[in-house]
Each structure stands twice: as C-alpha cells, then as structure tokens.
Amino acid sequence: MPIVPRPDPDFGLADIPPNPPVHYAEQALLGALLLDPHRIKTIGPLDPDRFASANHRALFAAMATLTAPAPDLHAREPVWIAAVLAHARPHARGLTPSYLHALAGACPDPAHAPAYARMVRSDHARRTVLMHAGLLVQAANDPGLPDPTAVTLRRADALTALLDHLAATFPSHPGSLPRTPPPAPPNHQEGTEAAGEEQLLLSTAAAYPAALASMRWLRPEDFTTVLYGGLYRCLTSLAGRGEPVDKVTVLWEAQQQGLLTAAFGSQEALELLATPAGTPEHWGEQILRRSLLHRAHLTGLHVQAFTQDLTNSPHQVITGSRRALAHLAGVRARWQQATGRTPAGRPPTPPVPASRAGPSPQRTSLPPASSRSPR
C-alpha cells in the first residue's frame, strides 16, 4: 500500500501566543486618554515609540499632536475619537472605530493613566536593553567584521550609555539585584588556532622570559585551555620570584603545581615548550583579544537573561546589567594596557613565517578533555 503522508495540523487559535501584559497596559492608557483626553498632561514624558504595538504608536502620536476638545463638547459628541482615528489611520491602516471603542472599554479607571504610562515606559526600557544586548552578542561572534574588537567595544559603550540614561529615569528600590539564574556559558570551541597560539606563547615566553615583566595584562583565565593557563601561571610565578625561566624550570614548576598527568607528562611539556616563534607580546595579544570577545559574549547573554525575566523591575535590570558590564570592563582595561604599551617609533613585531604560524605537527593534538574547558 502506498504511504500517505499525514497532513500537518491546522494552525488554530490556541497556537497564537498570548499578548504580554504591556499590551493591556497600552490599551488601558489609550482608553484612559480617549475617555478623558486632558489626562495626557498627567502621565509624564512619553513618546509614541515607547509603545510596542504599531497601532498604539499611531494612536498615541495622534493624541499627542491633536488639541483635546472642550470637556462639555467631549461629553456630548464623539469628536475626539473621530479626530484621533482620522489622524492615526494613514499610519496604521488596520485601525477601526470599533477598536477605539474597545480601547475605551479596556480602561478600568482613567485616573490610573499615570500608572499605565509607567508600565509602558518600563517595558520599553526592557525591550531596548534586550536589543542592545543582542547587538553586543552579535558583534562578539561575527568574525566577518573588519575589526570585531572595536565594534564589540562600541556596542558595549552604547549599552553602558543606555543604562546610565535609564538609571536617571527609574528610581532605585530595595532588593535591587536580580534573582535571575545565570545563563549557561556559551559553548566555546577552542579549535586548533586558539590552542596553537597559546602553545606558541608558552614556548616563546619560556625562551624570552624578559617579556613577562611587561605582560601583566595577560592572565591564566584568558586561555581557552585550562592546562595552558596553568603553564602560563608557572612561567609568571618563576619570573615573579626572580628565578631562572627556561623549559626545564617550567617543567619542574608544572610538577609542583600538579599539572603533569599520564596524558600530559614531562616529554609532552618539553616538546610544547621547545619551538618559540615571534614574540610573547604578539601571541599574548591574540589570546587576550579572544578572551575579550568571549567575555563580551557572556556579558550580552547575562543582560539578555535579566531582561527576558519579566519578574525583574527596570532598576533590577539596570543593576544586574551594570554588574555584568563591570566584568567586561576589567578585561577591556587590560586590553587597552596591552595594545597601548608600544612606544612611538618602536618597530612593529616581525612577521612569523607561515610554517611557524601554529604548533608543530607532533603537537597539534589538544590535551584530553579533562584538562580543557571553556573559560
């Protein structure tokens, strides 16, 4: 018998997602202003673009533009509803007189218009922060940008400026920290390029340890591979104590810090440290750039989590987002220290031959998964 494909189920009313609470707040506010147009003077500063619905934006723009009728005329004739509809319809073709009457019926009490307006402003602030957080995540993960680092930092600056503006608008209150669970860290795939750059830094810094004194901007947590971050800590510990630094002393320090395992023993450590190329500063900058973009990605995810949690007030979103951006600011300060360290007139870093752009073939495999994890 031929197999008859089962038809897809029809799209029903139950499949339509419910309207968010702000939809009803917008309806109540517009209904209040249709019933009592003079209450627009009591709701505080509010722009049409604060409304989530295009129809509601058009209606409020009409109300803010038109002159309200005299109270006695408004009580006798529906001139206000007719004027608002005529002014808004060219910008929202779907508007009908019946919808405006439905808005008037959706308002529990016109005297509560200021409260409805605060709800509209709060939800617009949440949506705007969510949009900026999305742009930050996008920039941090777009390798096609001419300068991903610069674009990412500009997006972070725009988000910071928005939060500063909102902080002056929404008052603080007790319990200001959001209780939103932190999102899962992004699935960071190190790849051979990142691992190769980290291996080259370790071998080059072991050969030229004098550079470590000026590389305090790089930290072990910047490495994508935990093992390599631990080996870098061995290098900086030896240099900080003023002890000799070479591949043998680093191997001994790695043993003292418990980094040697059956999968990564003495021979593997010596091979990793045996082929320097370029300069430590060059490889350190590559590692720190990747760490900065990773932190920006994680920051954007945190801010998105705060804004998507509708139980958070605007002040909680602002406070939590600022705290997340503070972690990014720490990595950014180290990045600025690293990229601004070169004095004027210093020759650029010599190019690394293509054959030395990554680890040697016998070292291209990464350590076991037990020694590697995302930052």
Rank of each mutant, 00 (worst) to 15 (best):
T65R: 15
S122L: 00
V129A: 15
A102E: 14
P20S: 06
Q316V: 05
R126P: 04
A115L: 06
D10F: 04
L292A: 06
A28V: 05
T279R: 03
S266Y: 00
L270K: 04
A254E: 06
C107L: 02
R363V: 06
L162K: 11
L130H: 14
P185Q: 06
G230S: 07
M131T: 12
P9A: 05
V250P: 04
P108N: 01
P353C: 04
H282I: 03
T299L: 03
E77G: 01
G134I: 04
A354W: 00
H294Q: 11
G229E: 01
R346E: 14
V245L: 02
Q199P: 00
Q304H: 05
P90T: 04
D157M: 06
R216Q: 14
E281T: 12
D222Y: 12
D157N: 13
P90Q: 11
R121Y: 08
L202P: 12
R89L: 13
P71L: 12
F11R: 07
D36E: 15
V84K: 07
T42A: 15
L30Y: 05
T225N: 12
A52Y: 01
A92I: 05
G134V: 07
A195H: 01
S313A: 14
R289H: 06
A213V: 13
R154M: 15
H74A: 14
R290P: 01
A14L: 05
L202M: 03
A64S: 14
D36C: 10
R6P: 00
T169L: 08
P183L: 03
H302D: 03
G31Q: 07
S237W: 09
P244S: 12
L260R: 12
V352E: 06
L136F: 11
G229D: 11
V331W: 02
P97N: 08
P209E: 08
W217D: 14
I81M: 09
P343C: 08
H124Q: 13
R6C: 02
L325E: 12
G340V: 04
S214F: 07
A357D: 06
A117W: 01
G345L: 08
E198A: 09
P174L: 05
P97Q: 10
A106P: 07
R332L: 12
L159T: 07
A58S: 09
E271S: 07
P17V: 02
Y232L: 12
P348Y: 02
S53L: 05
D109F: 04
G345Y: 11
V120S: 00
A54D: 09
D246N: 15
T204L: 01
Y232S: 10
V151R: 12
V79P: 01
F264Q: 10
V4G: 00
Y228H: 15
S373A: 15
R295M: 13
D8L: 12
L159E: 08
T160R: 14
H294T: 08
G300C: 00
D8R: 03
A32D: 02
H327A: 13
G196H: 01
L270G: 07
T42F: 02
L30E: 08
T42K: 10
H173A: 14
F60Q: 00
L235I: 10
T339L: 03
H294S: 03
R289C: 06
P220F: 05
T152D: 02
T249F: 10
S172R: 09
K247H: 15
S176W: 02
L73F: 02
K247E: 14
A113E: 07
A133N: 05
H124P: 00
M63W: 10
T279P: 00
R322V: 06
T275M: 00
D15F: 01
Q189H: 03
G230H: 11
